[in-house]
Design a protein around this nucleic acid. Structure first.
Lengths: 228, 228
DNA sequence: ATTGACAAGATTGCTGCCAATCTTGTGCAC
DNA sequence: GTGCACAAGATTGGCAGCAATCTTGTCAAT
C-alpha cells in the first residue's frame, strides 16, 4: 500500500469502498487494519467494522487470522453480477419511466447527447463515466429504494470490469445505441419498453464481457483508469 | 425479551437472523447487546459484529448511542422487496430450468404434489412452509451464487409478510396454480416460461400483499406462526 | 394535571491491552 | 542447493474497562 495517508477522519466504510471501486486498492491486495486506520485517520476498531460491512457486500474476503483482501471477481462471477443487474435495473428503468420528474428526463437526454458526442470524439473513458452516471440517474429516478441499494452494491463489486466493457472494440457503438433506446423509452413513459431495453443492454454487456474480458485480464493489472 | 437463554455458543449472526425471521424477535423490538450475548452464549463483541452484518442486510436498524432494533418493513417496502425478488428469482428459475439435476426436478415435483395435498386439507401454514422450500430449492438448483445470496437476504427481511400472503383468502388456490406452472416449465427445461411464471407469481404475491396485508397488520402483532 | 429540572441507572462506543495465530527470516543438517 | 526446524516479528481476535450518551424515575413549580 503506497497510498498517501489522510489525516482527516473520513467514514472508513465509504472511503474503503471508493478506493477499491476506483482501483486505488487492487484485487487481492491485503488490507492491514493498522495501515487502513492510519490512512483514513480512524481507529482500528472503526476499520474493523468497515471491513465487516464490506465483507457482507462481497467487496472483500476475510480469512480467519489472516485478515482481509480485496475480492477478485472472476469472469463467471462478473457475468452473474451483470445478469442480476440486468434484472434489477430493468425494474428500475420501468419505475423511472413511470415516476421520473421532467427534470430527470431532461438530464437523461442530456447524458445521452453527451455520450453521442464523446463517442464521435472516440473518448471512451469519459464515455464510460457518462455511462455510470446514466445508470445511477435511472436508479435514482426510479424511486425504488430496494433496487437502488442492491444495484449500487452489485456495482461496487465490479467497477473494474464495468470500466473495461465499453473499451472493448466495437462495444462503444452498440452501447450508444442501447442507451439511446433506454432513454427514449423512459422519456416516452413506456415502462415495458424501458425495462426490455435495459435488460437487453446489460445482457449484451454480460455477453461482451464473457467474450472479451479474459484476453484483457492477462495484461498486467495496473490502475483501472489508466487502462485503454 | 422474555426468551430462554441458550448456553451453547452458536453463531450470533445466523441465530439472530433466524430468531428475527421466525418471529421470536418482533419488529421494533430493542436488541440489547448484553442480553443477546447471554442469549446466544457469545461475547458482546461477537454480538456487535453480528449486528453490523444484519444492519447491512437491512434486517435491523441502528441509531447511534441508541442501539439496534428489529426493522419494521412497511407495506410499501414489502412490495418493493417482492418486486426485486420477482426479478431475481425469475433469473433463478430460468437458470434452474437449464441446470437443475434430474433429482432436483424430482424434488420440485414432490413439493408441488405436497402443496396440492396440503391445499386440499386446507393446511395453510404447512403450505406456506412448503412454498418457502420450493423457492429455496429453485434458487439452489439455479447454481447462480449471486442471485441466490441476494434473494436469501431479501427474504430474511420479510418472512413475516411472506407467511401471511398465502393465508389471505383466495390466495392459496391461485398460489397453487402458479407454483404448478413454475414447476412444469422448469421440469420441461423451458427457461423462458419458467422465468415468466416465477415473475408472474411473485408479482401476484406483491399485489395480494398490497391489497390485503394492511387489514391484518392492524391485529395485534403476536408471533407470526400463530397468525391465521 | 402538566411541565420541567435533575439525579440514578442502563446502554452504547471506544480504546488499550494481550493472547493466539500467521508470516518471515535465519541457521543447520543433509 | 534444498529442505527443515526454530525463533522473531507482524497481524488478527477478543476481552476488560471506562467515558459518553441515552433512558427512566422522582420531585417540585405552576
Amino acid at each position: 500500500m503506497a497510498g498517501a495517508r489522510r489525516a482527516a477522519p473520513v467514514d472508513a466504510y465509504e472511503a474503503l469502498r471508493d478506493d477499491i471501486a476506483g482501483g486505488r486498492l487492487l484485487p487481492n491486495e491485503r488490507l492491514v487494519e493498522h495501515d487502513l486506520a492510519r490512512r483514513y485517520g480512524v481507529s482500528r476498531g472503526a476499520v474493523r467494522t468497515a471491513l465487516v460491512r464490506l465483507e457482507q457486500d462481497r467487496v472483500i474476503v476475510h480469512e480467519p487470522n489472516r485478515g482481509a483482501r480485496v475480492r477478485i471477481v472472476s469472469e463467471a462471477e462478473a457475468v452473474e453480477i451483470l445478469e442480476a443487474r440486468a434484472a434489477l435495473e430493468g425494474i428500475a428503468a420501468a419505475h423511472a419511466a413511470r415516476h421520473a420528474t421532467d427534470e430527470q428526463l431532461a438530464q437523461l437526454r442530456e447524458i445521452a447527447a453527451e455520450m453521442a458526442q464523446l463517442h464521435e470524439h472516440g473518448d471512451l473513458l469519459d464515455m464510460s463515466e457518462a455511462n455510470a452516471r446514466l445508470h445511477a440517474l435511472i436508479l435514482q429516478a426510479s424511486g425504488h429504494q430496494t433496487v437502488q441499494l442492491l444495484a449500487a452494491r452489485l456495482n461496487s463489486q465490479m467497477v473494474r470490469f464495468q470500466y473495461r466493457t465499453i473499451l472493448v472494440a466495437g462495444r462503444a457503438r452498440h452501447s450508444l445505441a442501447e442507451h439511446r433506446e433506454i432513454v427514449e423509452a423512459t422519456c416516452a413513459r413506456d415502462s415495458e419498453a424501458a425495462e426490455r431495453a435495459m435488460r437487453a443492454h446489460l445482457s449484451n454487456v454480460a455477453r461482451a464481457l464473457h467474450e472479451r474480458v479474459m484476453a484483457l485480464a492477462d495484461q498486467r493489472p495496473d490502475r483501472t483508469r489508466a487502462v485503454g
